[in-house]
Design a binder for these strands. Structure first.
Lengths: 152, 152
DNA sequence: ATCGATTCAGAAATATTTTATGTAAAAATA
DNA sequence: TATTTTTACATAAAATATTTCTGAATCGAT
């Protein structure tokens, strides 16, 4: 699927604010409702637009700690890896998990209320997994940038 | 601000799908439109709901490479740090940047089309910064989990 | 030149959001 | 305890937004 400049303009706008109305978008890119509507629907159908979500404020929800965890598995076989993946999917505090090539196997990003919660998570949920051999934690002191916007 | 169970139910729904109508939400939590409307407006006003965004498909936009970069600065002074932060804010391929305590200073997450783009980014945009002393890259082989949903 | 496909505009129909009005229960005050 | 105030909710009407319909203009291909 080929995106023309109009598609890209729409995507750039919707990435930043999904609550813009079709009319808002139409005005901003000098078009009528119809093409904007049709294009958005097409972008949704094609899966270019995956979903619309609300971004909540971490701190106001009491989540004041973010941690990167480098995890090394006991073995690098498919079974061990699949078992680990499965466990991670059911951990809401793990907001990011990526399989890595390097001196460890996974990079995780964890969001939690405080250090006590992290201690608990580390001891009772992560290190307890049979697939996990080593955990290396990096505590985030300050968030400089965090965006869902992709370059288009 | 205190969130009751009804607020939390609304937030859980909107985090996953911001295109649910007030009616949809009202039905799902057995309420009428008014309280749902009023609560959502209050959550927006209080900043609990920060924004509504569209999530786009990386691969369909041609971004097939994700990299974590551990960056060490030349000095850990405020000025150097502030200069680095400023530069990062203007780099659309850097979707995440966090100041870290540990054996390096920053953890970055980069999204790009391919290795060639990364090579270019590394040489022409990142390592060229006067604040940067060392870059350590970890290439993501496979994305296991990536969510904007916070545990509530 | 004509046909078909694509892209867009305008308007009507439908659905959603917003506002207004009112009621009942709980909390606060006299 | 009685009264007032506040809070939370329901229903309905008004204002907006989305969706669908109809048709015109442009571009390519035959």
């Amino acid at each position: 699927m080929i995106l023309d400049e109009t598609d890209k303009k729409i995507l750039r706008l919707l990435q930043v604010d999904a609550h813009l109305t079709l009319k808002d978008i139409a005005n901003k890119i000098n078009l009528s409702l119809t093409p904007v509507h049709d294009r958005v629907k097409r972008l949704e159908k094609e899966g270019i637009i995956e979903k619309y979500v609300s971004i909540l404020n971490k701190k106001k929800l009491g989540n004041n700690l973010m941690v990167y965890c480098q995890v090394t598995l006991v073995k690098q076989t498919y079974d061990v890896s699949a078992g680990f993946n499965q466990s991670i999917m059911n951990m809401p505090e793990v907001v990011e998990c990526n399989f890595i090539s390097g001196s460890f196997d996974y990079m995780l990003k964890i969001i939690l209320p405080d250090m006590e919660s992290y201690h608990n998570f580390h001891q009772k949920k992560l290190s307890i997994l049979p697939e996990v051999s080593l955990i290396n934690s990096f505590f985030i002191i300050s968030e400089v940038k965090s965006t869902t916007v992709l370059p288009i």
